[in-house]
Design a protein around this nucleic acid. Structure first.
Lengths: 183, 183
DNA sequence: CCGATGGTAGAATGAACGCTCTACCTTGCC
DNA sequence: GGCAAGGTAGAGCGTTCATTCTACCATCGG
């Protein structure tokens, strides 16, 4: 079964989030996941694979976390931003795991790919939600704006605190929607 | 003189921006700065000091870059965001050097301090500019919003391209100002 | 001309790293 | 019972890293 693999991936995710990527060697990761080195390498045959595994785990966890929420109205569109506020209070607040990984491994194709995919999917999420409440509009620019607010909020939460960052992102999102006559 | 030191700091800044922090050892940094190992260590007695030196250099370079610009009106407030667009086209587009450094050295007090200071000064920049055009208003929330847009734009430029990120940030900034009756 | 300053090249060191390997143990199905 | 699957502990290998050190050179004010 890959139950063990998933458990390890979850531990890797948490460890990379809390301690960063560079400051932890494979031995520290092994200890944090509480498995043997052999088992760790069986599931993730290189350190890079461990990073990819952690990112894949978080990608899934993040979109699972987004399930549910209001089905109509402006809150349907704002929900990912609202939910991000909750997320930031539950996990270690060290910015975006994906962008942090990319910062440390700018040359890794596998990592670049998963980061790009995750962010594209997030941008799509806003597009889909906007189309749901404004089917007759071109929502492309608004989707980009909401995506930008989401990213900015993630980074700003590290520096100004989660609540202020959430409030600022929601304020700006509502203003952007209002300026386009949506809401 | 510290001319040599400044030259090295500038090279370190560029190298960290282009190649990331983790993937470069001291020997690579030395080669990129075209100095001897001895001289490098004379000015920056540890690798951490090299990171701090690069960040200090960029902090100064960034605020120098912000000098000038329109003195009145909404463009005075938007100028850091407009100028960020230019900046992103001139340097390697790998996100925020400060946040990347923090991602790789979450335990370094010296690095955390310079990152915090830089970001606080940037937030102040927006506060000061807002007060200049709206002296009778409480600009605190708007300053936070503009700061968030600035940060979000920096990250989004990596993924969606500089021009789209700049346009989205400016759109959102104008909407936020309009919503508060400023502009 | 001399000595201080600040540069060069690059070998040496000791620690830490990613990864592999040997040897053994536990569990559950036929 | 026995064997296959998948786990454990941890020593060892070769490499790379940050840092230090020896030995030498160029420039220039007094």
């Amino acid at each position: 079964m890959n139950t063990t693999k998933q458990k390890i991936a979850s531990d890797l995710d948490r460890q990379f989030a809390e301690q960063g990527f560079a400051e932890q060697g494979v031995e520290a990761l092994r200890a944090g996941a509480d498995v043997s080195l052999r088992t760790l390498y069986k599931h993730f045959p290189s350190r890079e694979a461990m990073v990819v595994g952690a990112l894949e785990h978080r990608d899934k966890a993040y979109f699972d976390w987004l399930a549910g929420g209001p089905e109509n109205g402006i809150d349907h569109v704002l929900y990912p931003i609202i939910r991000l506020g909750d997320w930031l209070s539950e996990v270690a607040n060290t910015g975006c795991l994906f962008l942090n990984a990319l910062a440390e491994h700018p040359d890794s194709i596998a990592i670049r790919e998963i980061v790009t995919d995750h962010k594209a999917r997030l941008a799509d999420e806003f597009r889909i939600r906007l189309r749901a409440i404004a089917p007759d509009r071109d929502v492309e620019q608004l989707a980009e704006t909401l995506f930008l607010l989401h990213e900015g909020m993630t980074q700003t939460a590290r520096l100004h605190g989660r609540d202020r960052a959430t409030a600022a992102a929601l304020r700006a999102a509502k203003a952007a929607l209002a300026a386009e006559g949506i809401a």
